[in-house]
Design a protein around this nucleic acid. Structure first.
Ligand SMILES: [Mn+2]
Ligand SMILES: [Mn+2]
Ligand SMILES: [Zn+2]
Ligand SMILES: [Zn+2]
Lengths: 127, 127
DNA sequence: GGTACGAATGATAATCATTATCGTTATCAT
DNA sequence: ATGATAACGATAATGATTATCATTCGTACC
């Protein structure tokens, strides 16, 4: 179903080559800088299509959605409210407890997002 | 610092009298229906001020922010993607594990949000 | 009671991320 | 090559939230 066009391949390659969490505008700018400008609407559509195909993951932040590689194990995020640093963490026990909490309530889980906010190690030192 | 004006008191009373998670527009409409119309900008400002004062809690969803009473114990949410039902749950172990996961990384936590998505018991039966 | 000043209000414009539209173009199967 | 279908790009539209700014309110002080 998914047509992996040149544009979509560029988007995917860009994100797969990094460990960042990209928003649509950052992707658009990076592609422009690389001489592969793509219309912003196409970036939005491409990101959504790639995620639907399981080739990208995303996290929904308060103001915008950010995309990242999907070839890593599932993880959650810790975000520094000072510098914006996003740290990833995997916690199997928390994952398992979520599943059982859902099951107890007759909820069939399709996804979840755990985001923690605070000050990262280096920002906390400075103040 | 916070002036608990008539308008803000109305907003607070409305939310405190319920167990729902309200968005700004719903608050505005409910106040209008009750004959206490308040400008939508005032609703937004009131909600933000009440939350800053600790009198309301909120959850950030993909498209909008929803406010709820703050006089309940901290809890997280399970949201049915079929019917929109929001179920609350408290899980002390998950809370504790989050704290230690943060500490391990030198992160000083200021908040977190755990949202699970899926189908609730009744929606799951039907299909 | 009258004054003064900062905060709150309301109407509305502005912002910003995202989606919709629509004419054009690329892709793929036959 | 042809035709059907999906993708693209420019741009308008949407929707939640915030900014502006003139007016009004609340309160501390005389
Ligand atoms: Mn990540
Ligand atoms: Mn709640
Ligand atoms: Zn930091
Ligand atoms: Zn449901």
């Amino acid at each position: 179903m998914l047509r992996l066009t040149q544009h979509r391949q560029s988007i995917l390659d860009l994100i797969n080559a990094s460990n960042r969490h990209w928003d649509a505008d950052e992707v658009s700018r990076a592609l422009s800088d690389a001489g592969q400008a793509v219309g912003i609407a196409t970036v939005y559509r491409g990101l959504a299509a790639l995620e639907a195909a399981g080739l990208l993951d995303s996290i929904q932040l308060a103001d915008k959605k950010r995309y990242e590689r999907a070839d890593k194990a599932h993880h959650d995020h810790m975000i520094c409210t000072e510098c914006g640093h996003i740290e990833e963490f995997i916690h199997e026990t928390i994952e398992a407890l979520q599943l059982s909490a859902a099951k107890e309530r007759g909820f069939v889980l399709t996804g979840h997002q755990l985001t923690m906010f605070g000050r990262c190690k280096s920002c906390d030192k400075q103040e």
